[in-house]
């Protein structure tokens, strides 16, 4: 798991540059933080790295994931990126269906991956300590975040990018989620976007990328 970003330049529609010749190298497995003030482009960087379409911006540069090079301008069309890099948005409710159960959400997340389902369910539920048949609407904020991560894990990604995973959580749930992310980072490259310095103080041993 080796991610290299080279000559990353993002020009906004208005003409101002958000990034100019930005380069970055991350080696996994491990947990990295991208920290910075609001509006510096943390989420834009994450979305582009994950190959998601970001409207109203002009992107150039390239990304190397495990030695394979991709042009960031055409990243959204790359099936490799969509299979190997998973992005969990800041608005976690956009990633789950609240009228359905945990089990149904996990089944739906496997839509493009597995013909069978049940044998994969139990280890996931155990790992994230999630109840199986409870409607998602009844889960706490921390459990919803864990569910979104569990759903993202069904793709078995090499890189997991989490955008402000604790921004809407109380301190107790924040620690619950961060502990789960730290556990996952033993096996994959986890990239966490945050501006919560206090929370990161608990995980000071891990590297940070300052924007």
């Amino acid at each position: 798991m080796h991610v290299v970003v080279r000559n990353f330049t993002v020009t906004m529609e208005a003409g101002n540059k958000l990034f100019s010749d930005f380069s970055l190298e991350l080696k996994g497995p491990g947990l990295y933080f991208i920290i910075g003030q609001n509006g510096v482009g943390k989420s834009t960087l994450a979305r582009i790295l994950a190959g998601l379409v970001t409207p109203a911006v002009d992107v150039c540069g390239e990304v190397l994931i495990d030695g394979v090079t991709y042009d960031l301008a055409t990243a959204p069309t790359s099936s490799y990126l969509s299979d190997h890099v998973v992005y969990i948005t800041q608005r976690v409710d956009d990633m789950i269906a609240s009228h359905f159960s945990v089990r149904e959400n996990l089944a739906a997340a496997m839509f493009t991956r597995f013909p069978g389902f049940s044998r994969f369910l139990k280890p996931t539920l155990d790992l994230f300590a999630l109840p199986e048949n409870i409607p998602v609407a009844a889960l706490s904020g921390g459990q919803r975040q864990l569910l979104a991560i569990a759903m993202a894990m069904q793709k078995q990604p090499s890189v997991l990018i989490l955008d402000e995973p604790t921004s809407a959580l109380d301190p107790q749930n924040s620690i619950l989620v961060m502990d789960a992310i730290k556990q996952l980072s033993r096996h994959m490259l986890c990239l966490c976007i945050s501006h919560d310095e206090q929370l990161m103080a608990r995980y000071v041993c891990v590297p940070r990328v300052n924007l």
Partner: peptide, 10 residues
């Protein structure tokens, strides 16, 4: 339930 679900899960 949530049309954004499909976008976020590609």
């Amino acid at each position: 339930d949530n049309p954004r679900f499909l976008v976020n899960h590609r």
